[in-house]
Amino acid sequence: MNAAVNINPFFLPTPLGHLFCMYSTPVNAPIRAKVIYLHPFAEEMHKSRRMAALQARQCAAAGIAVLQLDLTGCGDSWGDFGDARWERWKADVFCAIDWLNNETNNDTSLFIWGLRLGGMLAVDCAKQLPNIAGMILWQPIINGELFINQFLRIKLASEMLSEGQARIGTRQLREQLTAGESVEIGGYFLAAELAQTIATLRLEQMTPFCPIIWIDIVAGAESLPIPAQQKVIQEWKNNGCHLYTRYVVGEPFWMTQEISECPALLTATMEMMEQILQ
């Protein structure tokens, strides 16, 4: 898209500290919808910044304002990663939505867009936001406990590479977290409270009641969704959730060695948002 957009970086004050935000809006055109973006976890956030920025610009060019938010302890917001807590992140989201609503007409359709763990956070926040127009979920985390276990394995893999063997196993790391101790994983200090909360979350138990755009990246056109994902989607549909699902071919940019893009994901997101906004 060639339409001009405004990109405004700023710090949003909250009761605990300032949150870094990027606000993308159309130039000389009305705002017909608004979106708040919730980033993924730890290093995945940094790997995903380019894709988030590209999508925000495409949305703004189409008249959809986008607020990108760095949560507490992440990116350029206040605090260290060890200060992060799930309920604190939810409070960050609600503060940002209040700001976004004040900046725009309250009747303007509001969407929450989340990538990976940000998708799970979006679904959890939506329970307290009955009037949102919809959610955009990019490759959402399905099972919080499995996700935390995978994150802990990063430490084991790092020790294997540097020392030839891991000094401690996943079970021992989980025991430390259960005992209330923080653990350091890849330069991130993971608080026990945050890990324990995430581990309790299951998407199949969190049916949202707004239209959902769910897009996953797959390796090839013949790839099939994983059974756990199919189970969640079917459970949501059984509970009355209206889902728009799509699979696009591309690289998992949140974990690639180099910063990468997935143009098909950008295109699919815009197409599916237009379906809801019509």
Rank of each mutant, 00 (worst) to 15 (best):
I226G: 08
Q128L: 13
L100Y: 03
E271G: 03
I64L: 01
N106Q: 13
L201K: 12
N143R: 08
N106C: 06
W89P: 02
M22W: 12
Y244M: 06
V232G: 02
Q275N: 11
E87A: 13
C74D: 10
E159D: 11
A60Q: 01
P13N: 07
K90F: 09
P227H: 07
I36L: 15
E87G: 00
D70A: 07
G118Y: 07
S223N: 12
M255I: 03
A264P: 09
A195Y: 05
A60V: 01
I31Y: 04
Q172K: 12
V183N: 03
G169F: 04
S223Y: 06
A62H: 14
V218H: 04
N2R: 08
G63V: 04
P263R: 05
L19V: 12
A65Q: 02
I226D: 13
L69E: 01
R171W: 04
K231S: 10
V183E: 05
F41Y: 14
W138F: 04
G220K: 13
F147W: 14
E184H: 09
F20H: 12
R88K: 09
A219Y: 00
L146Q: 12
G118A: 02
M1T: 08
I148L: 05
E163Q: 15
L19Y: 01
A53F: 11
V248Y: 06
L201C: 04
E271P: 02
K231E: 10
L156A: 10
T197Q: 11
K90A: 12
A91Y: 09
T170N: 05
T197M: 10
G17F: 05
A191L: 00
K90T: 13
I217S: 07
V123K: 05
L224V: 11
D98R: 11
A42V: 05
A221L: 14
G180K: 03
Q176A: 11
Q257H: 07
A42E: 10
G63N: 06
E159R: 05
W99S: 01
L152G: 04
G187P: 02
N105G: 13
I226P: 09
E184D: 14
L16Q: 09
V93W: 03
A199G: 01
N101T: 12
Y188K: 03
P211S: 06
N143K: 07
F81Y: 15
W78C: 08
E145R: 10
G82P: 01
K90L: 15
N106D: 13
G169N: 15
W78T: 12
R50Y: 08
S48N: 09
E193S: 15
